[in-house]
Amino acid sequence: MKSPVTFRLNGSETAVFVDSGANLLDVLRRGCGDLSPKYGCGQGSCGACTVLIGGEPHVSCLVLAETVAGRSVETTGGLSNGPDLHPLQRAFIEGFAAQCGYCTPGMLMSAKALLDRNPSPTRSEVEEAISGNLCRCTGYEPIIDAILEAAKQRGAA
């Protein structure tokens, strides 16, 4: 059975019919056409599907789509403002913090949640914030450095 769900997706009011039991990741990708959250493991262990719900990071593969009714959902697809990249996106690009790129959207969202509540995190706070996001290429170091750099840039701005 399908039911209508209305929520804010990256600031825009969005209405979509969802199958009961459908997960948010599937609804974002297939229902809303937002391909920025990635399907990695489908069981909440890899973090590639991380989105923000009410500003908090969640693995969207484990979230029932109906539970976001009336709430605000943010994805990497909404990070940039037109051609203006988010400081995190700029820092990731300039710091070569992606290789295959599959973990990157999840990393960005976990990092955004961190910086939104803690604008100048320590290195270990950054490590903690992305500890639910697996990366197989970079060895994490460039990602941690990029998040710290973005915090610095945002502080300076």
């Binding site: 262990s45 890899c46 992305i130 500890s131 996001n133 697996l134 990366c135 060895g139 990602i143 941690i144």
Partner: peptide
């Protein structure tokens, strides 16, 4: 059988290189 049990170093285990 999955990422929860297949051990890999995480972001807290990086090594200065």
């Amino acid at each position: 059988i999955d990422f929860n049990h297949y051990l890999q170093p995480g972001p807290g285990d990086t090594v200065p290189h």
